[in-house]
């Protein structure tokens, strides 16, 4: 766990956008073509992948899959036939008929971009050996949206940055990253507050760069950010030793004793407790269990567990109960 810096880097993701040359892209695709594309992807992947026809699935299942990042929101809302293929270990997911015909994504634990990239390349090669992938020597992989031309790759790392958030350093980080062809965004929250102190750093450049250089530069930047976050945490601990501890235990108290809790309050508590666990202040909460609770407490995942659609009051009651079961 230490080697992947999981207390700061939550997960890594590599995504490839690919299209089959002989079929129109999403906006011009009809249901017959979409079914043919799904069938071609199925045949190309062969054994070792489970298939889920998303068009047949209920709202709660699909919603919970968006929440745990198994699929994109656009994919969930697609009006065409669309299917998800998942590898046996669950790390490789192939969305057939998303915005692009194929969206291949690999999500791995902690900071493990190279591993995610290698796995993605393996499946990409398998698909390309069987399918006529749309490609141009100058423009690279041809994609529905021209912003993805070139590598068609987005690599990203989900980061937990409570101390850089607290000290306001995030803003200068954001400015510097844009100069490096990368971007940082708060993953949750509607305003400027990044709920849960969770951020996503990803590449913005796809044309005129190699995948290896993107992965390597991103990794270097993430390692630097981890270093900065750890330094900021240390500074806060040195100057105000009780601040993190008080917040962590106070939030733990809320989760232990509250009977109703809404999403945003839970996400704030999650961030406080996660810092406490990372700094070794709280020993009886497991980081993986806490991260799992973060997903399980989301509306659709929660309602799926409840087995029914529920209003916000019912959800807040169920959330408080569910969290107690998980941590």
């Amino acid at each position: 766990m230490k080697s992947t810096n999981k207390d700061v880097a939550v997960s890594s993701r590599v995504r490839f956008a690919r299209n089959i040359a002989d079929y129109p892209f999403y906006g011009k695709c009809d249901p017959t073509s979409a079914n043919e594309i799904i069938s071609k992807v199925r045949d190309a992947l062969g054994e070792g992948y489970s298939e889920m026809d998303l068009s047949e699935k209920d709202e709660l299942t699909v919603g919970s899959m968006v929440e745990d990042h198994s699929i994109s929101r656009e994919f969930a809302n697609s009006e065409l036939p669309h299917a998800l293929f998942t590898s046996e270990n669950g790390e490789v997911k192939i969305m057939a008929c998303e915005e692009d015909h194929i969206r291949l994504q690999v999500i791995t634990d902690g900071l493990s971009l190279e591993k995610a990239y290698e796995e993605a390349c393996e499946v990409d090669d398998l698909l390309a050996s069987k399918l006529n992938i749309a490609f141009d020597d100058n423009l690279g992989y041809l994609t529905h949206c021209p912003t993805n031309l070139g590598t068609g790759m987005r690599a990203s790392v989900m980061l937990f940055l409570p101390a850089l958030t607290e000290t306001g350093k995030i803003r200068s980080v954001s400015t510097q990253l844009s100069k490096l062809g990368m971007t940082i965004r708060g993953l949750y929250g509607e305003g400027s507050e990044a709920l849960g102190c969770l951020y996503q750093v990803s590449n913005t450049e796809t044309l005129g760069v190699t995948e290896e250089s993107v992965i390597s530069n991103l990794k270097d930047v993430i390692e630097k950010l981890i270093e900065l976050e750890n330094e900021a945490r240390k500074r806060i601990c040195d100057s105000d030793p009780d601040r993190f501890a008080d917040r962590a235990f106070r939030s733990l108290g809320v989760l232990k004793y509250s009977r109703m809790i809404d999403s945003s309050e839970f996400m704030r508590c999650y961030a406080d407790i996660r810092v406490g666990v990372s700094l070794g202040l709280i020993n009886d909460v497991d980081l993986d269990a806490l991260d799992r609770a973060f997903i399980e407490a989301m509306p659709y995942t929660l309602m799926k567990h409840m087995g029914k659609k529920a209003d916000s009051v019912e959800r807040d009651l169920a959330r408080a109960k569910r969290i107690k079961e998980l941590i």
């Binding site: 690279g140 031309l149 044309l207 005129g208 190699t210 995948e211």
Partner: peptide, 10 residues
């Protein structure tokens, strides 16, 4: 979007 660039990747 991309400037005067050509693909050099995979």
């Amino acid at each position: 979007i991309h400037g005067n660039r050509r693909h050099i990747g995979r």
